[in-house]
Design a protein around this nucleic acid. Sequence first.
RNA 1: GGGCGGUUAGCUCAGUUGGUUAGAGCACCUCGUUUACACCGAGGGGGUCAGAGGUUCGAAUCCUCUACCGCCCACCA
Length: 713
Amino acid sequence: MPQELSKSYEPQNVEGRIYKAWEQSGVFAPNLNATKSPYSIILPPPNANGSLHMGHALYAIQDLLVRRKRMQGHPTLWLPGTDHAGIETQTEFEKQLKKDGKSRFDLGPDEFYKQTLEFTMKSQGVMLNQLRLLGFSLDWSKEKFTLDPDVISIVHDTFKKLHTQGLIYRANRVVNYSVVQQTSLADIEVKFIEKDGFMYTLNYGTVRIATTRPETIFADAAIAVNPEDERFTELIGKTATIPLVGRQIPIIADNHVDPKLGTGALKVTPAHDFNDYEIGLRHNLPQLSVIDLQGKMINVPEELLGLKPAAAREKTVEMLEAAGFLVEKKPIKHMVGHAERTGEVIEPLLTPQWFLKVKPLSSRAKETIEKGQITILPEHFVKPCLDWFENMYDWCISRQIWWGIRIPVFYRTNDDTSKEEYLISENEEEARAYFGDGNYRSGTDTFDTWFSSSQWPYITLKTNNLFDQFYPTSVMETGYDILYKWVARMIMMGLWQTDKIPFETVYLHGLVNDKTGRKMSKSKGNVVNPVDLISQFGADAVRFSLLYQVTGGQDQRVADDTLKMSRTFMNKIWNASRFVLMKVDDYEAENLEFVAVSDADREMKVKYDEFVIEYNKQLEQYRFGQAAETIYHFFWHQFCDVYVEKTKEQIPFPMPDNFDESMVKQTRDNLLWMLRNLLVLLHPYIPFITEEIYQILPIKNKKQFIMVEDWVE
RNA sequence: GGGCGGUUAGCUCAGUUGGUUAGAGCACCUCGUUUACACCGAGGGGGUCAGAGGUUCGAAUCCUCUACCGCCCACCA
C-alpha cells in the first residue's frame, strides 16, 4: 500500500495540484472526436468586477452535469465568461472615485471607461481563480468578456438588424429615471416598497381629485373621468382649475379611470406618470415637465423652484392648505418605486430613449414554451414565465451610464432639436455620407447590460466558431432570481437571432441564504464567502454540501451541519480507500472484474446494481440532492459498513498459511472494482478527492484522469 | 390586487407517478480502545407529517377551505 497516505483527508494538499494538472493537460476542452451527441452549457457570466458569492458556488450543478456527460463520452463544452455589469460596476467605481473627491464628470466618458476597465480587469482575475478553486471544469481557452471587441461587434450588428426590421425605435417617453445614477432603468430594476404617505384631496373648482403627489399638479394637462361615471357626465368637455396657479385644463373621458378609486376624477400628468403618459397620447395632451433630470423642480411657482420633489410636496401642501384648496389629508400606505441598486426613489421622467418593440419577440418566446420546446425546471416557473412574456412592455435598452457598450449612432444636430436625425453607425463618415454636411455628434448612451447578455449563448459560441456544433446549448442553469431579467430575454433574443431555441432545458436553482434563512446581502453583513468555506472544509465538501441541499428549486441555507457532514464523508471516502489499498497490498490489478466468490459478494453486487440504476435515474431527473443522498448512503452504509467489513474475513489478517489464494485475489479485484466505480460515480460531485485516490489505485491501464474515465451505467 | 413556494423528529431538511411499522444529517441515550476512519462502529429514544373537511380499500403525498411564514409580479390616482 502507498504508505504516504495521511490518516485523514487534507484537501489543501490536493486541490491546487490536481486542478493544475487537469488544466495543463487540456481535458477541459471538448473532445470533438467523440461521436455521441454534443453537450454544452454556457456559464452564466458573473460580474467581472465582483467576487464570488454562494450563488456562484451553486454552479457546481453545471460542473456535475458536465463532468458526467464528459465521462459518458459526449463532446462536452462548458464555456466561461464574465459580464461587465453596467450599472453595478459603474456604481462601484464611482464610489472609488468619490473617495478621491472626484466624479465621473471630472474624467469624461472615454477616460472614465478606460479607468473602469482597468478597475474591472483587476477583479476579474481574482474571480476567475475562485472558480478554479471550486474545481469547475470550464474550458478556459473559450473564455469571453462582454466587452471583447468581437462581442461588441455582434451586439452592434444585432442592434442594426433589429432597427432594420423596425423593431427598434427612439422616442421621448416616460421612463424610470435615476437622478442619482443619471440614467434610465428597466422596469425590472425598479423595486416597489411599501411606504407611509398621504392621500390628498384637492379642490379643482369643478371637481375634486385625489393624489399622493400634489407637487406635480403644475404639470397637469387634464382631468380624466370614466365615460360611464354618471357623477361626471355633465362635466366632460368643461374645464377644471389647477389650484394655486389657476390654469384651466380640460375634463376628458377615458376608460382607464376607475370610478371606485380616489374621487373618481384623475389628474393627468403625462410627463410624470406611466398611465398618464398613455392617456396623454390618446387625448393629445401637452407633456409638461416639472421635475428635471437632476431631480429638481422646474416650471413651478418660485417658492418651489429647485426643490427636490419630497420637499416640494410638503411646501405645496402648505400652500394649498393656506389657500383653502386642501380638502382632505389622509395617511395611507402605498407602493413607491426605488432603484434596486441605490435605493433612491425613482421618478418617471420624460426623456429620449431607445426602445425594443418586444411584442413580436415575446409572443414567439411564449409560443415556444407553450409548445414545450424548452423544458423549464422546476415546472412551477413555467406559468410565471409565460405571464411575463404576455405582459412585457417595450424594453428601454438605452442607459445614460458610460460603462458599457456604446449604442452605435450619430445624430445630426439641427436647429430644431425636436426633429433630430440619426443614423445607426459606428462612424461619423457614414453619417456624413448619408445626410450630407452638418454638425454631428456621437451618441453617448450605452446598452442595458441585459441587452448584450440576452444574446450570450449565441455570442459566445459564434465568436468561438462553435456555433454549428453546440447551438442550441443543452442546459441553462442559473438562479430563479434572474428568470425574467436574463433567461426569458435569452429565449426571446435567441429565437429572433437564430430561429432556434438557445437551450433545450432551463434548470433554475434556489437561493443560498444565511444560516437563519435570510437572504444574504452586503448591507445586512451576512454574506458568506465560498472561498472561506473552501479553506475551512475543502472544495469537495463545500460542493457536496451545496448539491446535497439542491431540491426542486428550493432555497437553501449555509448549514454548518451539512458542511461538517460532507467533510466527514470525504474523510470516510479517504479512509475506506486507505483500507482497500492496504488490503490490496502490493498487488496490481489487470482486467479488473467483479466476480462473486461469497454470499457477501453476491449480496453486494445485487445492492450495487440497484443503487447504480437508482443513482443514474436521479441524476437524469435533475434530482441532485436525492442522488447525493443515495450515493452517500450506499458508500457509507453499504460499501463500508457491510461489504468492507465482510472482506476482512475474505482477506484475513494475519493471513493463515493455507488460505485460499484465489479467494484473496478475487476479493482484491472486487474491492478495487467497487471502489473504482464508486469513485467514478462520485467524481462529478467531488472531483478532487476522487481524482487523488484514482491516481494511486493499483490498476493497470488506467486513464490519465478519472475525469475522463468511462461513466458507470 | 394577482401568483408562487413553504409549514414533516429538539434543530436543518429529504420524501415525483397515493401502498408495507414516515427517512437523513446534527443533537441526545446505551455499549464498544476489532489490523481504514473516534471526522469510527453496534444499538436506542424521539414525529396525531400546520388545522379542518373531502376522495379512496389505503393520503405527508390528490381535492376544497383556513391559518401562519417567505418570495415574485402589479401603472389603485
